[in-house]
């Protein structure tokens, strides 16, 4: 019995506790991201935003959540029941499982696997299924069109995202996310983050992240003006809430990946005294918040792209540029012997 406890039950319990320690703060930040979005956009529009429920409207996300839970879940008669219910669950689960490999601090990571970058890429490429399945299972033309648009969009932008990842990997020589962050540390602080040498790639990555999460200005899958609400028209109550939570969790995830790849993850801006007193996870959270602000800012500022412009940007601009960047970065790394194990 003691052996069973020490060998299996205790490690299993520990893992469950770690998962809870990641998921609960994540879900709370998702709830408050929706609040922050409304406040930030309100400020940009010179409005007040939500300010009625609780002090400064701080209880608004709780009220919204409660409302969604109390609503009735409607399944349309023509819908494919099983797929219709699985689709939002899939979206939400995929938005959570990706966090398993994100390093929050030096050694603070649930699964420190060797192929962390590929794992993230694989999980984000699965995200398209939730939307396509929802669009198809709803048995409604608006939902179907939204699902198809979204699938085409996500597949297109994944290609250039993959090439951007390769340029980062060329500079690091490892697929492990913790190694990627460590490769950006040094006496120069933030000048050694990959956003400096790979600035164009960082921009391409951030724009592709907007397209990958179906956010403005690339939110064609749910373009209200044309498709009412795209793939999630037929969803109500908690099934809708799962899509909503999944979308916002994906935004936070993309910001976290951007911080790890380009903004030095948990590293302080300068490796000197006042900055090093602040623990790593705090810096990481600040960087994520900065990226998220860009997401909200873009939403409040830019008009929606037309569909052909979206495809043009993905295939005719980002793909050639990132492909050229892979060749150039590889050439520079090889010529000047900057690669790992070349010094």
């Amino acid at each position: 019995m003691a052996e069973l406890w020490a060998e299996y039950l205790w490690p299993a319990l520990l893992i469950v506790l770690k998962v809870v320690a990641i998921c609960v703060p994540l879900l709370i930040s998702v709830a408050y991201l929706t609040f922050a979005e409304r406040k930030v956009i309100g400020a940009i529009h010179r409005r007040k935003g939500p300010n009625v429920v609780g002090p400064f409207g701080l209880l608004q996300p709780m009220a919204d959540g409660l409302k969604l839970m109390l609503k009735e879940t409607i399944i349309p008669t023509g819908a494919n029941r099983a797929v219709f219910i699985i689709a939002p669950m899939l979206t939400f689960i995929l938005a959570l499982v990706a966090w398993a490999v994100i390093p929050f601090g030096d050694g603070v990571v649930l699964a420190n696997i060797n192929v962390g970058v590929l794992y993230l890429f694989a999980i984000s490429s699965l995200g398209v299924y939730g939307i396509v399945m929802a669009g198809w299972a709803s048995n409604s033309k608006y939902a179907f069109l939204g699902g198809l648009r979204s699938a085409a969009q996500m597949v297109s932008y994944e290609v250039s995202m993959g090439f951007v990842l390769i340029t980062v990997l060329l500079c690091v020589g490892s697929l492990n996310l913790s190694d990627i962050v460590r490769a950006q540390s040094g006496p120069l602080g933030m000048l050694q983050w990959f956003v400096v040498p790979l600035l164009p790639m960082a921009v391409i990555f951030l724009v592709s992240a907007l397209a990958e999460t179906n956010r403005h200005p690339f939110d064609l899958p749910e373009a209200e003006a044309e498709l009412v609400s795209g793939y999630n028209v037929e969803y109500s109550a908690m099934t809708f809430a799962l899509f909503f939570l999944g979308e916002y969790a994906n935004m936070i995830l993309m910001s976290a990946i951007t911080s790890v790849l380009f903004l030095g993850g948990w590293l302080p801006p300068l490796p000197v005294a006042p900055f090093t007193w602040v623990p790593g996870p705090v810096w990481f959270a600040l960087k994520i918040a900065a990226c998220l602000f860009v997401f909200l800012w873009v939403r409040a500022t830019l008009p929606r792209y037309r569909y052909d412009q979206l495809m043009r940007l993905g295939w005719k601009v980002f793909l050639p540029v990132s492909l050229a960047a892979v060749v150039i970065v590889a050439g520079v790394v090889l010529t000047f012997g900057l690669g790992p194990g070349m010094k």
């Binding site: 192929v115 590929l118 699938a151």
Partner: peptide, 26 residues
């Protein structure tokens, strides 16, 4: 073989099967 596993998911599930699904749905 974790590399092969990830490539299998990225290539087959993330790209090839999406195209399949597209065609079959349409």
């Amino acid at each position: 073989a974790e590399f092969l596993a990830m490539i299998l998911v990225i290539v087959y599930v993330g790209a090839v099967a999406v195209m399949f699904l597209f065609v079959v749905m349409m």
